[in-house]
């Protein structure tokens, strides 16, 4: 029965990390019907299987209820609004799929999607590797580790308004960034007025803030790996790169999935700093989807259109997330 899923922990056998996590086992196999109905039901209710399922639901329920009230209902409303024309000031009017068609034919929306994809993958590609590397460094013995780790983490806790002001200042043509470029013999860049430079600038800013952020996520993942595994691996003669390859990486896989998915979602919703620094310009080069949605909804008073754009955003990130779940063989089946 369900107890079979508690397989023995796979020690040091990296390739069997998946088996270690959760064994297969039928999730809700029913007993063979040989006894009268009522008794059967009673027994079924008392069975460990049902108790297990019930506790599963119970643990999930409080948070899920909150999500229903404050997330799912608003989401359904947003979905409904995407099928209407709604200016916030007068009641919404149903228009079917018109908003979606409008967006599909709108070059500005296309530009916004392109800009968002650029930003998301431009930042995430770096975040995934740099933050893992940084976490590994800080997981190793290092003098003054606590102080250094705090210093590295500071950018992640700067208030977002200040984050924006700092980078606006760094982007000044005679600011620190260009001083650094000059020091290594590179030409100055007009970070905020050159449509080709502005996105790389924002990506740099995001790395400064979010690499440390995800470093902490990885660090906690690394700390969560029980020592026994490394000890067992050491007995098998695996250390250093080997241990990383056969112990760390497989056991870190859930964390890696977390970082990949969360970073994509977080970056796809980038908003405040872009709003403060460029407001989407020059020539729409930084009008990310979130800004497009904000402007369309609250400045242009086209909430229906904004909702439709956000449904596209949801579809995009959802597709990517499902792809990742499959790619990582996320196997908490239900």
């Amino acid at each position: 029965m369900w107890l079979t899923r508690a397989g023995p922990p796979a020690v040091a056998g990296g390739s069997s990390a998946r088996a270690e996590r959760i064994g297969g086992g039928a999730p809700h196999r029913l007993p063979v019907p040989t006894v009268p109905r009522a008794a059967r039901a009673a027994r079924w209710l008392r069975s460990a299987e049902v108790r297990h399922q019930a506790w599963g639901y119970l643990f999930l329920a409080p948070m899920f209820l909150l999500l229903v009230v404050f997330k799912f209902i608003p989401m359904i409303q947003a979905l409904y609004l995407s099928l209407t024309t709604y200016d916030l000031l007068s009641p919404p009017r149903f228009v079917g799929l018109r908003n979606y068609m409008t967006l599909l034919g709108d070059p500005l929306f296309h530009q916004s999607v392109g800009v968002t994809v650029y930003y998301v993958f431009g930042t995430c590609g770096f975040i995934w590797f740099l933050s893992l590397a940084m976490a590994l460094i800080f997981n190793a013995p290092l003098p003054g580790k606590n102080l250094l780790r705090t210093i590295y983490f500071l950018p992640a806790i700067v208030p977002v308004v200040v984050y924006a002001v700092i980078w606006q200042f760094l982007f000044h043509p005679y600011g620190l960034l260009n001083v650094a470029l000059h020091a290594v013999g590179l030409p100055a860049i007009h970070w905020l007025t050159d449509t080709r430079a502005v996105m790389p600038g924002f990506i740099l800013a995001a790395l400064w803030r979010f690499v440390p952020y995800f470093m902490i996520v990885y660090l906690a993942g690394l700390q969560n790996i029980p020592h026994e595994y490394y000890e067992a691996a050491a007995i098998d003669g695996a250390a250093g790169v080997q241990a990383f390859r056969y112990v760390t990486l497989p056991l870190l896989r859930p964390t890696i999935l977390l970082v990949v998915v969360v970073s994509i979602i977080l970056m796809s919703k980038v908003f405040t700093n872009v709003l403060i620094i460029t407001g989407g310009g020059p020539d729409g080069a930084t009008r990310v989807l979130s800004l497009f949605i904000y402007q369309t909804g609250f400045q242009f008073f086209k909430m229906g259109l904004a909702s439709a754009a956000s449904i596209f955003l949801l579809l995009g990130t959802m597709t990517f997330t499902l792809l990742q779940l499959r790619l990582f063989r996320d196997d908490a089946r239900g």
């Binding site: 369900w2 899923r5 959760i22 086992g25 999730p27 809700h28 297990h52 399922q53 506790w55 599963g56 639901y57 643990f59 999930l60 899920f64 999500l67 997330k71 799912f72 608003p74 989401m75 947003a78 609004l81 998915v261 969360v262 979602i265 796809s268 919703k269 908003f271 989807l289 979130s290 949605i293 904000y294 909804g297 609250f298 909430m303 904004a306 909702s307 956000s310 955003l313 949801l314 990130t317 959802m318 997330t321 499902l322 908490a332 089946r333 239900g334």
Partner: peptide
Amino acid sequence: KYRYFGQRALFIAVLSTLMLPIEVL
């Protein structure tokens, strides 16, 4: 750490709440 009916769907649903920007919600 539990297995129950509809778990996968519930998990995906939970994730989906992260994906809409606050502006529309």
